[in-house]
Computed example of a mutant assay.
Amino acid sequence: MNRALRTTLATITALTLTGAASCTLLADDGDDSGETKIEATDGVDPADAIAGTTVTLVTHDSFNLPKKLIRQFQKDTGATLKIRPSGDAGKLTNALALSQSNPIGDVAFGVDNTFASRAVDEDVFATYAAELPGSAEKLRLDGDAGDKLAPIDQASVCVNVDTAWFEKNDQEPPTSLDDLTDPAYKDLTVIPGAATSSPGLAFLLATIAEYGDDWPDYWTDLVGNGAELTEGWTDAYYGGFTGGGDGDRPIVVSYDTSPAFTVDKKTGETTTAALLDTCFRQVEYAGVLENAKNPVGGQAVVDWLLSPEVQAALPDNMYVFPVDDSVALPKEWAKFAQQPTEPYEVSADDISEHRAEWLTEWTDIVSR
């Protein structure tokens, strides 16, 4: 993952601090030559160990936090934080797997529960059992993966509808997955692709959880009913969805948080709704990369992402729920960002065992 109306971080602006703890946030240029591995030394505070070093955070394109938080991290550690956007969660995971022996950074954020098993199987992440807020323990992965990946945020992928569009067109919106194949909703749905997008894969898993072995038939009917597929969430929500941009389709696969960001200022009511019976929960993780040049710096970044300050910034900046339940949520969320009580689930073992098979079959169906 990266969210509903979240701002894509297309480029990273250089931020320079003045004073003794001066450091810079850099856009990554892909050149890590000449770096030497930084290890903590017994008796040396980790913050002192990384002062004056560079820490590279590899993340999805939707990573976005207030610059003041990034400056504070740099001031507190004396390190330079370099952000390296690497596509959606699927592309990110693939890039991390391909560069495992010579990683493209020190720490990664944005691998979610649909891709985590692949990353762990490929030995992408080093062991670092970060201290979690108590409320986040339920989101920790099972087995060794739980000591390698720390849950940072969570939200549920759900079908969203533009309620204003349906009201204007005097039509009842869909209420279920079955409805999306009804001719009444022909050519009205846009979905991020499962092979290139983490919410797209989450939606595929929701249909597998609902229809079991019959899921290919559902997708054949869905595509036959004119569902449009895009490469990623941004293209679907901003490009195709009437409620998010200039699109012409009032049904989209997005998040349970999305309606909190389509509130009409005049009426104080949201113009969209998430169908809470269609949801699959998505959790995003962070972890230190195996063979990282600056693993101590990577650990510091994981701890920072779990800090109350960053957790509190997640809803307004990345449109996800923090894993720390003690953090106050924006007031609009209580009314409009409702979470499903029984989201669809597919076990991590099943995802690991069948992901490639499912995606191959899904690609065949949507390519016909």
Rank of each mutant, 00 (worst) to 15 (best):
L17Q: 08
L26Y: 12
G43H: 01
S33C: 03
A20K: 11
L26F: 10
T41N: 12
A20T: 13
D45M: 05
S33V: 04
A51F: 00
T18L: 13
I50G: 00
S33D: 12
T53K: 11
T13E: 14
G43L: 04
D32K: 10
V44R: 11
A27R: 09
K37G: 09
S22W: 01
L15C: 02
V44N: 05
T24R: 13
G34I: 07
D29I: 14
D29M: 04
T13P: 02
D42G: 05
E35V: 15
T36M: 08
G52I: 00
D45Y: 03
C23G: 07
D28H: 14
G19F: 00
G34Q: 09
T13Y: 06
A40Y: 05
A51Q: 03
A40H: 07
A21I: 02
A14K: 09
A27D: 14
P46E: 13
E39H: 04
T36F: 05
L15M: 13
T36N: 03
G19R: 00
D48H: 03
T36K: 09
D42Q: 06
E35G: 13
E39C: 09
A47M: 07
L17A: 10
D45E: 08
G34V: 05
T41P: 08
V44W: 00
I50F: 00
A14N: 08
T18W: 01
T53H: 08
D31M: 10
A51G: 01
